[in-house]
Design a binder for these strands. Structure first.
Lengths: 230, 230
DNA sequence: CACACTAATGGCACTCAGTGCCATCGCGCA
DNA sequence: TGCGCGATGGCACTGAGTGCCATTAGTGTG
């Protein structure tokens, strides 16, 4: 077994996370000491802090990996693809990662719901996605007037849509078509906040839109976008 | 002096906050102990923890008060006023509170920029506004299909617009017309995410909109809304 | 003025998170 | 077998946060 060493590190890491989840559920977060988690995982207390920088981090073991995937989507995206579309794809990978976790994600959700310190950490983690998305959108939109405002609003909206779909899925115990709901939510965001229609820069052409009263605003915007694009 | 007691409490509280800001700026957050803050404010270490539950909280002394003001706006709002308008007014009071703080707000911004633990606390605080606004919007929108999604997206958008304007103002050292910028940003949000235009329910009337290519999307939406309203 | 009552204070001791240091262990390799 | 190296875990230390309690300051009452 040539890859035995990193394999053991991974096993220890997972054992610590599993032990922490069990103990937090059974005794509560404050009532569980790092000594107990380490002992339950069969390692020393000092080793715990070599795997996780703090007691809170033990139940968020793969946040960094998810953030890397988001960054990769941004790094490899074509400049032709609309910025919001890229943002939605990036956030979509985060949702996929949660869903792949399955039961673990649900357990963590309940822990973050019950214990404020874990909730605070969760919020901070989610905010890093917000930062990443907003930064990408800001870079893409360049120096357009109010571009930075749009980037922050649109980035927050995309992340909010993700959070909403994810939370519904977690509340349901990991049941339901979260990915499909996310696609619909993202389409709503793109229709509502897309900027492409505002970019037509070839003069003063006139577009006439015929709309039915009662049509959802999102559809109106989409139709206008289509008309303005050509 | 009949009101001398609460007056003294307020003075001690402010002395602790001021001492903490000074020391954090001078030495850094980790390098400053609670003993030092308390000593600089002329009280004992034990007293510090009677005023603030943690070392981080000492520079966010009035977060609770701001949250109360937001809740008051929601509690006293008329059911006739569009939900997004109420949300913007509520968040507006938060911006006013920051601006009223003046230099203190700028100092706190720099501390939260430089020290991760304070930044995490700031993010968690800001998120409580997000929760409050989203909850209000969700209650207002009732059981409309996708209403919860809209509430979360719109609430996050309003808070994001506030955050953007506030951060620009803080970065500029507390200079500039933040309230005016906020009003414009909120108008953009209401024009983009407002639901009133999508509610026209009187049949199949046809509206013809004449638009110039190159017109900002926000203006397009506003014009459509005007047309749909009558 | 003397006295009592109440809230705030601060000191003390304690638990526990997090860190630096170092001896030891397991394991591959020459 | 001996060597090198990364991982481990024990130990000691700092500092945050908390419970407990005696003391004090400030207020009202006779």
């Amino acid at each position: 077994m040539t890859s035995g060493v990193p394999d053991r590190r991974r096993r220890v890491r997972e054992a610590l996370t599993a032990a922490a989840i069990d103990l937090f559920q059974a005794k509560g977060f404050d009532e569980t000491t790092v000594d107990e988690i380490a002992a339950a995982a069969g390692v020393g207390r000092r080793t715990f802090f070599r795997y996780f920088p703090s007691k809170e981090d033990v139940i968020f073991p793969d946040h960094e990996a998810r953030l890397v995937r988001v960054a990769e989507v941004f790094a490899t995206a074509s400049a032709d693809e609309p910025p919001l579309s890229v943002a939605c794809r990036a956030v979509h990978t985060v949702l996929e990662a949660y869903i792949d976790e399955g039961v673990i994600a649900v357990q963590r959700y309940r822990l973050t719901r019950d214990f404020p310190q874990l909730r605070a950490r969760e919020i901070a983690s989610a905010h890093t996605y917000n930062i990443a998305v907003t930064r990408y959108l800001r870079d893409r939109v360049g120096d357009e007037p109010e571009g930075a405002l749009w980037a922050e609003v649109a980035g927050s909206a995309v992340v909010a849509a993700h959070n909403h779909v994810l939370r519904q899925w977690l509340k349901a115990g990991g049941k339901g078509d979260a990915l499909g709901k996310a696609d619909r939510a993202f389409r709503y965001i793109r229709e509502t906040l897309g900027v492409t229609a505002a970019r037509a820069d070839d003069g003063e052409d006139v577009v006439v839109a015929v709309l039915r009263r009662g049509m959802p605003l999102a559809n109106v915007v989409r139709r206008i976008e289509d008309a303005l694009e050509r």
